[in-house]
Write a protein that binds this DNA or RNA. Structure first.
Lengths: 122, 122
DNA sequence: ATACAATGTAGAGTTCACTCTATGTCAAGA
DNA sequence: TCTTGACATAGAGTGAACTCTACATTGTAT
C-alpha cells in the first residue's frame, strides 16, 4: 500500500513540511509516481517510527542522517549501524541516570518547600 | 564573598555572555558595585546550580524565568513555586519512563542487528 | 470544462538558547 | 602616564529543527 504525503503525514503525525525537510536531509526518500508525487510505503511508517525514537532519545538530525545513509547502503553497513546504536544506548543510559539524580534532588527541594510553607503558616 | 562576572563564570561553568543573557531574561540579577560592575554572591552559585538542574531536566528558559520572577517576589509565592516544581517533577517522571521504554526498544533493535550480522556471516 | 484541493520546488522566516561583535569605560600594574 | 585587560551595553549572528510562503502543476469532483 502506498500513501501520498498528506496521508503519510496523518499516519505518522509529522507535518508535510517536516516530511519534505526530512527528505532533504536524506532521512527518508520515498518513491515517486509518474506525476512526480511522493509514494510512501508501509515500511516507511516503521522507519519513521524508528527515526522518531532516535530523535526522542536526543539523537541530533545529523546523526540520524548518518544512520539513514548507512541504512540506504544495505547489508554491508550492518555492523557500523549496530555500533551506532550501541553507542547511543550508552548515552541514553547515562541520560536516564542523570535525570533520576535530578529528580531526587527535585524531590528534596519540594520537601523543603513543604516545610517552609508549614513554617510560614504558623 | 562577592564575585565579578569573570570569576562567577569560572565558578559556574557558564559563559560570561550566557550570564548576561540570563540576567536579561531575569533569571539571575546580581548586585552592582559603585562602578556598575556585577557582584555575584555565594547564594547566586546555588541558585545557578538549581537553574541548571531545571534546564537539564528540560524546563525551557521561559518557564525558569517565571519561577525566578516568583522567587524574586519572596515568601508570598512559596506555594506557587512548589506547585511548579511538583508539575515539573511529574513531567520529569514521564520523561524518564518514556526514555526507559525507548531504551528497551533500542535493545531489541540491537539484538536484531546481532542476529542479522551472524546470519550474514554464515 | 472548470474549480479547487493536494502536491511540487525553492527559498524565506521562526523559535530557542545562546554566542559574538562593536564600541566605550574604568581600574590596576609597569 | 600609559597600556592592558576586565567589564559595560546594544545589537547582530549562529545552529538546530522545523515551519511557512510564493508560485507552478496536477488529480478529482461537479
Amino acid at each position: 500500500m502506498d500513501y501520498s504525503i498528506g496521508e503519510f503525514s496523518k499516519l505518522t503525525g509529522l507535518g508535510i513540511h517536516t516530511l519534505r525537510y526530512y527528505e532533504q536531509e536524506n532521512l527518508i526518500i520515498p518513491k515517486r509516481n509518474a506525476a512526480n508525487r511522493r509514494c510512501y510505503s508501509d515500511s516507511d511508517i516503521k522507519w519513521i517510527d524508528f527515526i522518531k525514537r532516535l530523535k526522542d532519545t536526543g539523537m541530533p538530525i545529523k546523526e540520524i542522517k548518518q544512520y539513514a545513509e548507512l541504512r540506504a547502503m544495505g547489508e554491508s553497513t550492518l555492523y557500523e549501524r549496530m555500533e551506532m546504536l550501541i553507542n547511543h544506548r550508552k548515552a541514553l543510559n547515562n541520560q536516564i541516570l542523570l535525570l533520576q539524580e535530578h529528580m531526587s534532588k527535585l524531590d528534596d527541594k519540594i520537601t523543603f518547600y513543604q516545610n517552609e510553607i508549614e513554617r510560614v503558616q504558623k
